[in-house]
Amino acid sequence: MLLTVSGPPGSGKSTNAEILAERFDLEHISGGDIFRQLADERGYPPVEFNELAEEEEQIDKDLDRRLRTIAATRDDVLLESRLAGWLAAENADLRFWLDAPLSVRAERIAEREDKTVPEARATTERREQSEAKRYADLYDIDIHDLSIYDAAINTARWSEDVVPDMLTAAVERYDPAEDEGKHPVEGVRYEF
């Protein structure tokens, strides 16, 4: 089974992806981990590497190519990244989008990164604007278009122990035999 979990920073995607992967005995592959690995390979701290990615489109392409290759060749993984749903559009069994209001996400990020909420909010807004522009420029993808996802969940509405149960229930009730002809992005191809 190939699952994807996507969403903006602070949405709970990493936490929920880890839990979901464990529950279904899937390898959890994080785009963030691969990004940090690429940064390390080139000798940059992740923050500086993210800024460099605004100038060098090859950085995004390298990351996305690695994730796309995994999606095309494996069916025993959970891919987690902002573009995972798009990267695995043809192969994923289920694609999930997790989100929360920016105010909630900024609080979460501030807590985990030991920042003030205004700092976290400003950094997050800038990062999201940069990424949205890069995805549109590189692949003509509108990151705000959620039509490719099988479920979009506002993680601020439920406690952190409820969302994984919701995702688990969706996966448990998924029947590939009933999916025939219902794939929302069938035939969509992006060059990564």
Rank of each mutant, 00 (worst) to 15 (best):
A84R: 07
R112A: 08
E113T: 15
S103L: 03
W86T: 10
S81M: 00
R108E: 07
L79N: 10
D99I: 01
R108T: 06
G85Q: 00
W86V: 10
G85V: 07
P101Q: 03
A84P: 00
F96A: 09
R82D: 05
D93H: 13
S103I: 02
R82K: 11
E107D: 12
A110T: 12
E107A: 12
R112D: 05
A84S: 15
D93F: 05
W86Q: 10
S81F: 01
R95L: 04
F96I: 05
S103N: 12
R105M: 14
W97T: 09
D99F: 07
R112E: 14
L102D: 13
L102K: 12
A100E: 03
R112L: 08
E111W: 03
N91D: 14
A92T: 07
R82Y: 07
D93P: 00
N91T: 15
L83K: 04
E107S: 10
E111N: 14
E107R: 12
E80P: 13
A106N: 09
A92P: 07
A88L: 03
A92W: 02
S81T: 10
R112S: 10
R95K: 14
E111F: 05
D99A: 04
E113Q: 15
A110Y: 10
E111D: 15
I109T: 11
L79T: 09
E90H: 08
L79A: 03
D99Q: 10
W97L: 14
F96H: 06
L83F: 09
R82Q: 09
W97G: 07
D99G: 06
A110R: 10
R82P: 03
S81Q: 08
S103E: 15
W97E: 10
D99K: 07
E113K: 14
G85N: 01
N91Y: 11
L79D: 04
W97D: 04
R82E: 01
